[in-house]
Design a binder for these strands. Sequence first.
RNA 1: GUCCCGGUAGCUCAGUUGGAUAGAGCAGCCGCCUUCUAAGCGGCAGGUCGGGCGUUCGAAUCGCCCCCGGGACGCCA
Length: 639
Amino acid sequence: MTDQPSSPSSVRAEDDFDPVSALSSRFRVALSRAFSDLPDAHAAAQGADPLISPSRNRQFGDFQSNAAMPLAKVAGMPPREVAKRIIRHLDLGDLAEPITEASIAGPGFINITLRASALSRLLGVLDAPDLGLPPLPADQRRTVVVDLCGVNLAKQMHVGHLRSIIIGDCVARAIERVGHRVVRQNHVGDWGLPIAMVTDKLMRMRAGGEDIDRLDLDAIEKIYKAAQADCAADERGLAAARRWWSHPKAMAELETQVSGAREALASAKATLVKLQSGDEATRRVWQRIADTTMRECLSVCARLGADVRAEHSAGESSYADELETLVKDLLDRGVAEIDDGAVVVRVVGIEEPCIVRKSEAGGGGFLYATTDMAAIRRRVRGLGASRVVYCVDARQGLHFKQVFGAAIRAGYADLPSGEHASLEHAAFGTILGQDGRPFKTRSGENVKLTSLLNEAAARAGEAVAAKNPDLAPGEAAVIAETVGVAAIKYADLSSDRIKDYVFSFDRMLSFEGNTGPYLLYAVVRIRSIFRKAAERGIDDSASDRASFGIAAPEEKDLALALLRYPASVRAVADHLEPHRLCQYLYDLASAFSAFVTNCPVLQAPDDATRRSRLELCRLTDRVMSDGLTLLGIRPLDRM
RNA sequence: GUCCCGGUAGCUCAGUUGGAUAGAGCAGCCGCCUUCUAAGCGGCAGGUCGGGCGUUCGAAUCGCCCCCGGGACGCCA
């Protein structure tokens, strides 16, 4: 969901390493000249997109332009005639083989075959330190807030957090990589009645003489669940029991339970008030919960290779002091109105209004929509964001629609330019178990991330030991951990994020096909070649950097794949779709595997070929490693 | 009931702005290791793109209607 179209992160006038943009600019020139005698067609062709895309089938060349067909109608001539006019004015220079009428195929496709010399030159341009993704000029550089992780206090890290961390981290890295300033925000659920319930229970435990400082997160989570159960009054059950004249004993039990729950709830509410008013003793216990939770959260993020650190935390509690004035501001300016006693903001196009304050009858408290509006205001005004990306479960879709609409209506997303910040929900689907139901343990509990990671590492360890028994135990352990984490992350990132996906250790760790381990293996093979080269005394130093010689079909395919890298990264940054980079890296790894099985590197027929192929290996390693890093996966030397 | 998201090969998934004969991987079958890790490469087979109607030179892609699955729907977060 995007409330305004996200602009391309950066499209330079001449991306000269990218064949698509090089060909596009040549075609634009031809299009602007092809219809100078026909005013209508001329006008249409001026702004027309050359529609350059990689050919799907090799028999049609390397690239094709589909520009002729859409212009045929307005030009009033058959599309093949349009194509003929275009190629008559087309000058591809030494970029491609000559374009003739034989290049026009089907209804009017113009097929283009790049020259080997051009590929070689383009690779040379790509082979710069920034790999085709240079720093942005200041006027194009934006500040982007990425909302990710979003843990709750007093709860273990479980699969429900996995996608937000993995996708959020990847999206943040990609946006950063194309040159923007990224501010990560971990919107920690650390406020409100549920947290007050645990705090309350812990305080009573301490008053009873228990040493609560010894409790780990596991213990705290159990207390959290117990506290919730304590407060869950079965009011309806009691009412129904009274109405139906239930057995006195059952009635009595229900009454006891309900009155106990009312007591616990009242106590928790009192603790909430103390917490909100800054009572020191209460605050200390709350802080203890927060510290324990965050220590665990950050260590799991670190293990996942996700850049989520303490300084990224912006808990709901940090907005608490702003909510009162925020709601007043909304009411004062007529943005909000009273409805059934509650304060709501209506958003055009959405039936349900956004509730920012409960009615008096409901307690008059604030809701998570209130906090989210305060967060938007701080992110745009305080942090200077012109784009805010929420990596949050798809089920929050309506909530974000409401909050985004309300924040925009309130002017909280306004930028100095007069436009408003782009607020985007990078929604993702649910992780399912083999049964197609949300992924849970056999007993119905959430699967803890630590146990998930442990199992992945253990299974990866078995596979690594079987495939490569020569590794030293210490290195093998590191490799197992990296491979296991990579398998989980890649499985999460490689399909369209909006869809649910079925979690399967067997598939993600099968190490065949489109998996994390396959990509790691491609890099390992490259590095193995360089190790062998060093053993054989082959000088691969860059002092006399060889040029890229493109002759074999596998070399050409590899070259074409390499040149697509910058566009793939931009696709992730612009559209928040990590699976496009995954697909790209899989294509590149496949192209490399085909290359390496058919084109001997160290035993190449001649010295120039060997040096050229080594350069292809080196560049492939750089692109693969850069791309894997953007996915949050650490490349390996061996596995 | 209203709204959102899915439905593509036996299974898991890609499919860019509407472009050529809808692509991968797994599973199945057939080849390829005295040579840089076979965790690999090549090939065969496998499809009413949920269904229908429409728009278009051209539809998996756009529009409308239906079917199936999941989800969300005012004072929880």
